[in-house]
């Protein structure tokens, strides 16, 4: 009897809700799964990292509060400084090349060619292949003694190059692999933006006798800028966190030439047993990425035309 009353009162309270509240409730119900996983798998680790960075903790031992000591050590650590430099070099190297390649391929894939679907699939294929597989494949391709790349170059009388064992080019070699691996993803986003441009604009431009170059500069590029903004933003954020390719291909070597912050962070957390120190690094990276993202937003967002 009591339960019947309760159900009735619940129904009544729902009936008395305004339409706006009902909509809000429905909305929250829809976003709940994503929100819960965001809180558990993103927010909680981020907050935990901030807290742990104040401790001397090696996972296996009891944590000891040391205040900002980890941060003081961090900025005196020459390997961290080297890793930071390498990470910035990586972002500067990888992001522009990757986006330029994606854009060129997207423009090519936007052409009305026979069998274009096949080409689009092929260029997207590396994105679907796990990074570990791609990285291992390139370790063999880049091998100085019997890699296929040096084998091809030998026909041009070029001496074997230590693609991964020469400190001056190892980071570039990894970046090239990464461009090959990831450019398909950005290509897809830019391609969808290109295909969203109304045909009427091209027709109008054709009546004015526009050249293909002007069409690209004055119609296509301005209209894909919202997608370009997204691509640049996510590419920069991803680039700051480069890890897997370094871990598989060079383990940070030779010397510290491919040590990135994420790699050094991993080594400290899981190999050297310095979880607190590793978390301090992650906090520093968090603020660096945040600052770079805000600067990008300030520069790019005001120049974007969202309506075609």
């Amino acid at each position: 009897m009591a339960s019947v009353k309760t159900n009735t009162s619940k129904k009544k309270s729902l009936q008395h809700m305004t339409l706006q509240k009902k909509d809000a409730l429905t909305g929250y119900m829809f976003i709940a799964p994503a929100l819960i996983s965001f809180i558990v798998f993103v927010m909680y680790p981020v907050i935990a990292s901030f807290v742990i960075s104040g401790f001397d903790w090696g996972i296996l031992t009891a944590p000891r509060f040391i205040g900002i000591e980890n941060y003081k050590t961090l900025f005196k650590d020459p390997i961290f400084i080297e890793s930071l430099k390498n990470t910035f070099t990586w972002v500067i190297l990888y992001v522009p090349v990757s986006i330029l390649v994606s854009l060129i391929v997207a423009l090519a894939m936007d052409m009305p060619l026979r069998g274009i679907g096949f080409f689009r699939t092929m260029f997207y294929l590396p994105v679907m292949t796990p990074m570990v597989v791609c990285a291992l494949l390139f370790v063999w391709i880049y091998n100085k003694e019997f890699g296929v790349l040096n084998y091809i170059l030998s026909f041009l009388n070029i001496s074997p190059i230590g693609w991964l064992s020469d400190r001056n080019i190892s980071l570039i070699s990894i970046a090239l692999m990464s461009v090959w691996k990831h450019s398909g993803y950005n290509m897809l986003i830019l391609l969808s933006a290109l295909q969203g441009i109304p045909e009427s604009l091209y027709e109008a431009a054709a009546l004015d006798g526009i050249t293909p170059w002007r069409k690209l500069i004055n119609i296509k590029l301005p209209l894909i800028m919202p997608s370009m903004y997204f691509v640049v933003l996510t590419s920069v954020i991803d680039a700051f966190q480069v890890f897997t390719e370094v871990f598989i291909m060079t383990k940070g070597g030779p010397g510290y030439s491919t040590h990135t912050v994420s790699y050094y962070l991993f080594a400290n957390a899981f190999e050297y047993g310095k979880m607190g120190y590793a978390c301090a690094m992650s906090v520093v990276m968090f603020f660096i990425i945040l600052a770079v993202t805000l600067i990008q937003d300030r520069i790019m967002n005001k120049n974007i035309q969202y309506d075609s």
Binding site: V139, N143, T250
Partner: peptide
């Protein structure tokens, strides 16, 4: 010169 991975 040894590579950065030992397999080679």
């Amino acid at each position: 010169a040894p590579g950065t991975t030992e397999e080679g």
